[in-house]
Structures are given as C-alpha cells and as structure tokens.
C-alpha cells in the first residue's frame, strides 16, 4: 500500500523516547525514496498518456487525472514523512549541543548518519561563533541561581590543582564534597563529573 513505509519511519520517531535518538534508518529511507521515484514515473506516464490523447492536462478530469493526482499526493505525503523524520532528528541534534556540549559521546555518535554528524559539527560551530561574537557563554546558567554557592560531590576523577574563578586551587578527589560557586561548578556538573547535593 502507498505510504506504508513512510508511516513506519514516522512511527519509529514517535515511539522512541523523547529527546533520544535511535539508529539512523537509512534502509527505510532509501526504500521510501525509491517509492517516491516510482510514483513520479507513474505520474509522468499518466500525464503523457493524457497528452497523447490530446487532452488538456490542467482542466480535464478523467480517470487518468485522478490516478496522477493520487501519485502526486502519495509522493508529497512521503516527502512530508521523510522530512519529519530527518528534521525532528536534526532538532534532537540541536538540543544535544545544549545538553552535552560540542563533543558527542560515542554511543550517540554511532546512531547518527554521516550527514547528521556533519550537521552537528557545523551547527555547534555556528552556535560557538555566535557566542564568541557576543563574548558571552550561553551554555552556563541554565537554571535560575538561588544561591551563588552550591554543595557538590565529585563523581569522577577531575584531577588536582583546578584553578577556580577566585584564583584558588582546589583538589577534586573522587567522592569528596565541596562548597563551590555555582558558576565554577556548573561546567563540571554538565560534563557529569560532579553532582549537586540538594536538601
């Protein structure tokens, strides 16, 4: 049936967890694209047939016209599904830059197509150049600050002698707890090296 494969593609998108990416389904995309070409061929052959019969393609309303229309609509629907799939994934890729920063973790990178990887790099550099033009880092301060200082615990080995914004150095041994400036701690928290202790 027309459009079933494209529907599968969109379903795959919808059934996945929000904000997560599944493996880029290149096979299914190729199949849908092949279906589009097929529709286009049939569409053209129907139009040719009408022309051969000497009918005006724009105004005549015979069986061939409606046949061609069905092929056109099926093609357009397939295009919408393909675009929805790729565009929605691109949106997730955009949001990843905000969440994990400019370097993708391996397990996410594996699920992207080559073009998507390129897009991730290009988009994050566009974002970076916007921020450097403004001379303002927008990736910090993601939540409204309640207190300038927060209590954190080091989860992973960060190393010694990290210089903080007040020119003091700190020793972030694993599992040690610290009372830090939010702005200092945020970069470590977003990289998953520290966690905020609440309550």
């Amino acid at each position: 049936m027309y459009g079933r494969k494209a529907c599968q593609l969109v379903k795959e998108l919808a059934s996945g967890e929000k904000g997560q990416l599944t493996l880029f389904n290149i096979d299914l995309i190729d199949q849908v694209i092949a279906e589009c070409s097929q529709h286009h061929l049939e569409l053209q052959s129907l139009i040719r047939k009408m022309q051969e019969q000497g009918l005006d393609v724009q105004t005549s309303r015979n069986a061939d016209h409606y046949g061609a229309l069905i092929h056109h609509l099926a093609l357009v629907r397939n295009k919408r599904c393909l675009m929805a799939y790729v565009h929605n994934r691109a949106e997730v890729i955009q949001s990843l830059i905000w969440k994990v920063g400019p370097i993708l973790p391996q397990q996410i990178e594996e699920r992207l197509s080559h073009s998507e990887e390129e897009y991730f790099k290009k988009h994050s550099s566009a974002l970076k150049s916007y921020m450097s033009r403004l001379e303002l880092d927008l990736t910090v301060d993601m939540v409204p600050p309640k207190d300038p200082y927060i209590q954190v615990r080091v989860i992973d080995d960060i190393g010694e002698g990290i210089v903080l914004s007040d020119d003091k150095t700190a020793n972030f041994a694993p599992h040690s707890m610290h009372f830090l400036k939010r702005t200092d701690a945020e970069q470590f928290i977003s990289r998953g090296l520290m966690e905020e202790l609440t309550g």
Binding site: I29, I33, C36, S37, H40, L75, V76, K79, L82, M83, V86, H87, A90, S113, S115, E116, E118, Y119, K122, H123, A126, L127, S129, Y130, R133
Partner: peptide
C-alpha cells in the same frame, strides 16, 4: 541574523544531502 543565516545553510545542506536531492525535481 548571522547565526540564523549559518543555521539555515547548514540545515538545508543536511536535508538536501539526506532527502531532497534524491527526490524528483519538482519536489
């Protein structure tokens, strides 16, 4: 504006490469 221009170029290229260039001309 600068950012938006770059964004649209990048995303357009990505969409072209993945889907659009493989569709029939009129689409």
């Amino acid at each position: 504006k600068n950012f938006a221009r770059r964004c649209t170029d990048d995303l357009k290229r990505h969409l072209d490469e993945t889907v659009l260039s493989k569709l029939p001309d009129n689409y």
